[in-house]
């Protein structure tokens, strides 16, 4: 049986207390929410914090507030709650789809929104046991000096594998970070960093407490996920797209985000910009798909062949934009996800 290493355990009741603990412990402590990412990593000795600080007992982190003026979601809201909540539609559909496609039903009952946003980057050379990693003399991300995906690279290229991250970026989400010294709110897209090790700009003393979203009235959004099987698997490519269409179906605003194709979700700015002021016709969609695929740089460290994953990027952008303009692409969606989204 894989066992956890020894750790100290704290379970604060308030955000203030939690912030005090993290301030005192700094890098020695890690916040624990659903545990579905951190605990396997600890069992494989990829992460060995001296202290685990549970966030589950902090009431305020479990709140969901959806208002016309905008929404606020506590970091400890589970992915099941988001997936099952029918209020997450239209503008928020991408988030509900992303949440509903994470891992498995049991994991979604445990895993939290905050945890999925902060999901450790993944790599076939890193998500392995201590013994396995020893047999390759470890890697750049943990205990080693070589990136085995790209031995000449001085940067770790582990892949961002969050589903909700790209979806929330497409919705323009902001996150609230709380620490003993105060709090700050940043755009989620500014929180991520394109580095497999230093992939998130959350300081060790900060708690990601809340996600906030503007009113998305008039927006439609969608999330497309590529993985081998109908469940369990992390995304090896994803596309989140959101558009705001005017009365005559021209694009007023658009965001396209490509996930699992780099160390962070990538905003496809040029692709989104190319759509502005145009109707979502075939030509516009094809151009946007080609522009978006250009930024996807999958590497050989996940399931599936990397060139094929890149090829699918354009296809997924096409499906997503067709879906947003009202085409019925349910059959295509179901063929990839193996299940319907109701």
């Amino acid at each position: 049986m894989m066992r956890l290493p020894l750790f100290e355990f704290r379970a604060p009741r308030t955000l203030e207390e939690a912030a005090r603990i993290l301030d005192a412990e700094r890098a020695n402590a890690m916040p624990l929410a659903g545990g579905t990412d951190l605990l396997p990593n600890m069992k494989r000795r990829q992460q060995v914090p001296r202290m685990l600080m549970s966030l589950r007992h902090i009431e305020i982190l479990n709140r969901v507030a959806l208002h016309d003026s905008g929404s606020r979601l506590g970091a400890c809201v589970t992915l099941s709650e988001i997936a099952a909540d029918r209020r997450f539609r239209n503008g928020l559909t991408a988030l509900a789809q992303a949440a509903s496609l994470v891992a498995t039903p049991q994991i979604r009952n445990m895993a939290t929104l905050g945890g999925n946003i902060c999901l450790d980057t993944r790599c076939n050379y890193y998500d392995q046991s201590y013994e396995w990693r020893k047999s390759i003399n470890f890697c750049l991300k943990k205990d080693g000096t070589t990136c085995w995906v790209a031995p000449s690279s001085r940067k770790c290229v582990a892949v961002s594998s969050t589903d909700t991250g790209p979806a929330l970026m497409a919705l323009g989400a902001r996150v609230r970070l709380v620490s003993r010294s105060g709090e700050r709110e940043v755009l989620l897209s500014d929180l991520y960093n394109n580095d497999g090790i230093d992939f998130i700009k959350r300081r060790p003393d900060e708690i990601l407490a809340e996600v906030s979203l503007d009113n998305l009235h008039g927006w439609k959004s969608t999330y497309w996920k590529l993985r081998r099987r109908g469940s369990f698997d992390f995304p090896v490519l994803s596309v989140a797209a959101a558009v705001s269409l005017s009365g005559n179906n021209t694009v007023e605003d658009a965001r396209i985000v490509v996930g699992s194709a780099a160390c962070r979700p990538l905003a496809a700015m040029e692709a989104a910009k190319s759509l502005l002021g145009r109707p979502l016709n075939q030509q516009a969609i094809e151009e946007a798909a080609a522009l978006a695929a250009r930024i996807a740089k999958p590497l050989d460290n996940t399931d599936f062949d990397m060139t094929w994953r890149k090829r699918v990027t354009a296809e997924f952008v096409t499906y997503a934009l067709r879906e947003l303009r009202g085409d019925d692409v349910r059959a295509e969606r179901e063929s990839f996800t193996r299940c319907a989204f109701e």
Binding site: F9, L32, P40, R56, Q106, N109
Partner: peptide, 13 residues
């Protein structure tokens, strides 16, 4: 009442 994976739940919790 909810299905979870007992291998990823700390007994302490």
């Amino acid at each position: 009442g909810k299905p979870v994976l007992s291998c990823l739940v700390l007994a302490l919790e």
